[in-house]
Design a protein around this nucleic acid. Structure first.
Lengths: 334, 334
DNA sequence: GTGCTGGGTGTAAACGTTTACACTTTGCTG
DNA sequence: CAGCAAAGTGTAAACGTTTACACCCAGCAC
């Protein structure tokens, strides 16, 4: 039992006194008599036999694996998506292979190719930066779904958060609390840009002038942005492109003696797990990662999408980082 | 190019006007003339051919994949380990498959079995709860390494953080700052228990009586623990079993008007990414996840371990959640 | 007793690669 | 010019499964 050098179905067949076909049927639930089934089971257990998925996949053309490409294993949001994917895959006896795409530029293509060469049954590409032609050339007509990407020239269904709606909800919440001079700390990736555009649109529609502070999408980006924010002292609120930026901002503001929310209201985006434990608990826009994961998995398994491009709705979660601006409600556009 | 129904090496051979063996050699860098290499390359590109890893692995007996089993995709620490594993695998042209083990009890065995059936070249089991016999029966003599597990009756090398040393460092830091009445919020898993034992040992060795508050290892566990802590008002400091607990504790203390560190010093464990941005920045014991990942990967690839069981050293990172206790240094054991 | 049905089983051909071996060609040595 | 090495290529046998097909045999109707 210890020397598991190369234990095949043939060994099982031999010790059970049947043919390989019968063993295969026993393993996969084909037509078989209870008596032989038992005999095969015994042999399997006695030998400690483990099936070879490679050989199996080669002949069946199915591997039971869905490939998932995430930009970064470290993101809690991606982890939540992974969990959602798992939610639908495991009950089906399927699994997923997780790969990191954006290690350094070129990795995404390589990672995707690797998954395809592994004959995955489907591909979930999260936050893909690949161009539409690259994508189609690579993936061909295999089942794939693009998460965190708007519908584009690819034949694959896309699934994305409605960033515009999220930004709008955040800003409306701010407006309702009497804020008019709201700055935005912008992010870098697709989502970041979408949020920024939405911010600008909503501000303009309200007759206000947008103020955008560029930043990467990390905590240190948030702390850096605090300095830039000092150049815009009239601001009574900040809409952050995500929670990590908000966290960094919190930190820097504290250092500058600016109180949240009394001196400056802050809204985040994503609703990461630690947000509710901050001081003050962060008001933010919840991105339903797990649900998106579930949806993506169902889509890749062939569930018909209602439209080419599904968009899921974010939800504002109000906590304590927003209050009325100090000078009361100026009720005047900037 | 669009219909990628079943493009094999044979098709490439055909359009390049050579044999399959030659194509294979061209693909894998065997002896081949530059002229034919070019022809094959052209054909590959023209057809959009992608190799079939299944068939390849079947004959070579190697897949270039390392299987990784983590308790929970959501843990940032595991993500860091994954990154470390990636650090060593990618340069070698290898990849890893990530699976979640502890979804609900039984999953770990299934996940491990699944990886083995996929013919992974090695197995990295993080925080495995399986018993030694279960493990050996399942894994047999395939290369495997156990992370976050002390050496036990299995034939596989283990790799674990020296929790005792971490706890000791945390407590010594507290002692140096004049604390004597230090409570501990305990965690649940292997690591949690190890830290608790170390805490108790160090306290006793210092002639102090340990005070342990049971808790799960989450934020809400930390907030709950705050209430229990009220029954032990003499405590001047708390050593938390991990950062998440510390975060929850921070939150609850704030609600009770207890200031950190003036009224109560707090030390965490793990050094999660948000720790330095808290108010006050959290003093904690850094667990070098990425390095552990790297090490685990090297071990599983066959690098000889110095001993059966490697233990990596944590590092105290001092920030601002510890100061001298209010009443000055009592200099007296409890 | 003949013929049929149908459940259970075995035989053998795939699946798409790699690779040992044999073969051809070329260039060189003696 | 014979002989040989070396380089490049093709042939075919693996690898460990699944599955179409053929087969056997018991049970049963006629």
């Amino acid at each position: 039992m210890v020397s598991r050098r190369n234990l095949t179905i043939l060994d099982v067949a031999h010790t059970a006194g049947v043919s390989t076909a019968t063993v295969s049927r026993a393993l996969n639930g084909g037509k078989i008599s209870t008596r032989t089934l038992l005999r095969v089971d015994d042999a399997v257990r006695k030998l400690g036999y483990q099936r070879n998925t490679l050989a199996r996949g080669l002949v069946t053309g199915k591997t039971g694996i869905v490939g998932v490409c995430v930009p970064d294993v470290l993101g809690p949001l991606y982890a939540q998506m992974a969990r959602g994917i798992e939610d639908v895959l495991t009950p089906l006896g399927m699994q997923y292979t997780l790969l990191t795409s954006s290690r350094d530029g070129g990795r995404e293509g390589a990672a995707t190719r690797f998954l395809l060469e592994q004959q995955v049954d489907g591909l979930i590409l999260i936050g893909s930066q690949l161009s539409a032609p690259e994508l189609t050339a690579l993936v061909g007509d295999r089942p794939a779904v693009l998460v965190q990407r708007e519908a584009d020239a690819t034949p694959y269904p896309t699934l994305s958060l409605d960033n515009a709606q999220g930004a709008q909800a955040a800003l409306e919440h701010l407006f309702e609390n009497g804020h008019r001079r709201v700055a935005h700390i912008a992010g870098v990736r697709r989502d970041g840009r979408a949020r920024q555009e939405a911010y600008e649109g909503v501000m303009r529609a309200a007759g206000l002038t947008p103020v955008v502070i560029a930043s990467d999408s990390t905590e240190s980006g948030g702390t850096l942005a605090a300095a830039a924010l000092a150049d815009y002292p009239e601001a009574t609120a900040v809409f952050c492109s995500n929670d990590r930026v908000a966290l960094g901002l919190y930190h820097a503001l504290r250092g500058r003696g600016v109180r949240v929310p009394e001196d400056l209201s802050v809204v985040g985006f994503d609703d990461l797990p630690w947000g509710e434990y901050l001081a003050p608990p962060l008001t933010t826009v919840r991105q339903p990662g797990r649900e998106m994961g579930r949806l993506a998995a169902r889509l890749v398994l062939g569930e018909k999408a209602v439209t080419e491009s599904t968009s899921v709705e974010p939800e504002l979660v109000v906590r304590a980082s927003v209050c009325a601006p100090r000078g009361g409600d100026p009720s005047l556009p900037a």
